[in-house]
């Protein structure tokens, strides 16, 4: 349905997006994962016809949208990272305006406003000014505004940044409902791994402007199928011990987090004896040892050498 072909954006000497090719099939929920500065927002700006690419193409149903963006704009709903609303107006007034931009009027406009407000759970507070809403409620109106014209494709640029867990869950549930119940195609950008794991069927991983991996969650995790993750929790931080453990034979990658250590090792490696031996030597108390199958976070760590939220 929607695809990008070798999409590139260069700002003077910086290549923000480099040769990115994505495909979104109708009804699919696709995640675009990457740390801050990976080029996700720039890629989205180009896909949504807000920014012209330096090279490459964006196609909707096989037709390029770069020169004639109108078709794309009619079917596309974009939820920006910033809360792009008129805060001195009520949720109802904001939605009325965004509906009118798409030519809605009269009863149809009113019905649509009621529907999206119901969808985001703000029907009973629609007359309140947006500036008086909590951050989470504002995010919900931000989503509702993108839904006014019944878009076929919904692009969301980190829609849950800076909101409370309750609002986040509500927002994620709403998106899941839109995708699964209404068949809406979703491109979901985030640096929160758990959101992408929860919502998306397929994932593109971006770093330094490039797509470094793509596939279903299972396919991506299969990258680390011959490996396992060992998470060891200590009673406190032991910097020298942690370095020593990272150098044990077979350890392919290690991450230190305060008083815990995460090691990626080949599946079947026997290293627990060495681990406890070293811990005893340093007088460290092991609180917990957990051997896990790899997560997308581990995949990202393996591919880029850094964590998503770095």
């Amino acid at each position: 349905m929607l695809e990008t072909d070798k999409l590139t954006k260069q700002f003077k000497d910086v290549i923000a997006v480099d040769d990115v090719s994505l495909v979104l099939m109708r009804g699919e929920s696709v995640g675009l994962l990457g740390p801050n500065g990976a080029g996700k927002s720039t890629a989205i700006a180009m896909i949504s016809t807000l920014m012209k690419p330096s090279s490459g193409d964006v196609r909707l149903n096989g037709k390029s949208v770069l020169k004639k963006p109108d078709d794309m704009r009619r079917v596309l709903g974009v939820v920006p990272q910033k809360i792009a609303l008129y805060e001195e107006l009520s949720a109802y007034e904001n939605l009325k305006f965004f509906g009118r931009l798409y030519g809605l009027s009269g009863n149809k406009l009113e019905q649509r406003i009621e529907y999206v407000l119901e969808l985001v759970g703000l029907a009973d507070r629609k007359k309140e000014l947006v500036k008086n809403y909590s951050g989470g409620m504002q995010r919900r109106v931000n989503l509702a505004a993108a839904m006014m014209h019944e878009p076929e494709v919904l692009i969301m640029d980190e829609p849950t940044v800076g909101i409370d867990p309750q609002s986040r869950n509500h927002l994620l549930e709403t998106i899941r409902k839109l995708n699964r119940d209404e068949g809406m195609t979703v491109l979901y950008t985030s640096h929160y791994m758990e959101e992408v794991e929860k919502l998306c069927d397929r994932v593109y991983i971006m770093d330094h402007g490039k797509v470094i991996a793509e596939g279903t969650k299972e396919e991506l995790k299969a990258i680390l199928s011959d490996q396992e993750t060992v998470l060891i929790e200590f009673d406190q931080n032991y910097p020298e011990l942690f370095i020593k453990l990272s150098e044990i034979e077979g350890v392919q990658h290690s991450t230190i987090e305060e008083q815990s250590l995460k090691l990626i090792i080949p599946r079947g490696t026997r290293m627990l004896a060495a681990l406890f031996h070293e811990a005893e030597r340093y007088g460290a108390q092991v609180i917990n040892v957990n051997v896990q199958t790899p997560t997308l976070e581990d995949v990202f760590l393996r591919l880029t050498g850094r964590k998503l939220r770095d």
């Binding site: 807000l50 704009r73 009619r74 974009v78 792009a84 609303l85 965004f98 931009l101 505004a145």
Partner: peptide, 13 residues
Amino acid sequence: RTGTWSRMIISPV
């Protein structure tokens, strides 16, 4: 600054 301008740009207006 707030982004509502961008929202309008990506609409049919």
